[in-house]
Amino acid sequence: MGHSQLSPHSAVRTELAGLAALRAGERGPIALLLPGYTGSKEDFAPVLDELVTAGFQVVALDLPGQYESGGPVDEEAYLPGALGQVVADVVTELAAGGQPVLLLGHSYGGLVARSAVLAGAPVAGLTLMDTGPEHLPADGMRYQALGIGEELLREGGLEPAYALREEISARFEAWLRIPAEVKAFLRARFVASSAAGLLGMARALREEPDRVGELAAALRSREAPCLVVAGENDDAWSPETQRDMARRLDARFELVPGAAHSPNTENPAALLKVIVPVWRSWVL
């Protein structure tokens, strides 16, 4: 089996500020990793041990409502602003131990990470991975699928919504190559998540405004560096859009070869070659 959410690692399942987490490493700067929409902490399984070997402590979170983290029934609680405050509190708690905290947000987690910085999270560096300056492009397949999924979630709940997701995914060769045990995990994770959380996040993915200017000002005021990373074949926000976002943030921009929207599972070795040297230059 290739790299996936079930890749072996030495991280320990724990809780942090009431959120489910995978934590590895005992010394060094802390890398806090936020997953995307319908994701979880396990999305980072292929890179956890390698980051520890590179000198970092690693904490991968389930955001509120995701998989093993509970959350409220209010859909508003899952918008980037609300989740960003939760993450800012987590960063503050981690930083209280004396080590710098590097924050990485993938996809929807990138919108949350941005809001965490705007909420005052004391980060020593920010990495935005396969995320964009605002909501998903309205003409994209992912944006359109969210509208269909919302109807199913509201009318029938999690099971029919995931059935549609599988039906759409089955059209793509990459899905057909996924081992059965990974598909079983992906389904179990989805149906264990909060319907309110999925609805709130989906709303933000279709409505979130461009806050790049605010983020750039916040990073400058704290002298916190930023890295923007994109899979070379990202089909959510285009690499060109992410490159322009990096320019506006005065941030370094890197493409990950052999990856689309999830370099952490599609080409983790190439992702590590990008992020590890940059992170080490920031804090080691």
Rank of each mutant, 00 (worst) to 15 (best):
V276C: 06
S193N: 08
P160Q: 07
G258F: 10
V212D: 02
F185R: 09
L271E: 00
H261A: 05
A251R: 00
S262I: 10
L271F: 06
A174H: 12
V274S: 00
N267A: 15
V274T: 12
L158Y: 07
T265V: 15
R220F: 10
E232K: 07
L199M: 11
S238I: 06
L153W: 00
A195R: 14
R248K: 13
N233C: 10
N264I: 06
E150F: 02
D234Y: 03
A188R: 15
N267Q: 11
G231A: 08
E208R: 04
R142T: 13
A216W: 03
A269K: 13
E150P: 01
K273R: 15
G156H: 12
A218F: 05
S193D: 06
L158I: 10
A195M: 08
A195G: 11
A246N: 02
F253A: 04
A170N: 13
Y143D: 10
E208C: 02
S238D: 05
F172D: 13
Q242V: 04
L227R: 00
R247G: 13
E173Q: 12
E266Q: 15
A259S: 14
P257K: 08
G157S: 11
R220T: 10
Y143W: 15
A192S: 15
P239A: 04
N264P: 00
R247V: 13
M141T: 15
L205R: 00
E155V: 10
K273M: 11
F190E: 02
A259Q: 01
H261E: 08
L219F: 08
V228A: 03
Q144W: 04
R220E: 15
A188M: 10
G149Y: 00
D210P: 05
W237P: 02
G157V: 10
I148D: 14
L164T: 08
R165W: 09
K183S: 07
L146S: 02
S221R: 15
L227Y: 04
A230W: 02
V256C: 04
A204R: 01
S262V: 13
K273N: 12
P179K: 09
A251D: 01
I168Q: 12
S221N: 12
E166S: 10
L146M: 09
R154T: 11
P209Y: 06
L219C: 05
P277W: 13
D250V: 08
V191Y: 02
S193R: 04
E240M: 13
L271T: 02
L271C: 03
I275D: 01
S169N: 15
E181T: 14
I168K: 07
A184N: 10
S194P: 05
L198M: 14
P225D: 07
S262F: 09
D250I: 07
F185T: 03
L227V: 05
M245R: 00
R187D: 04
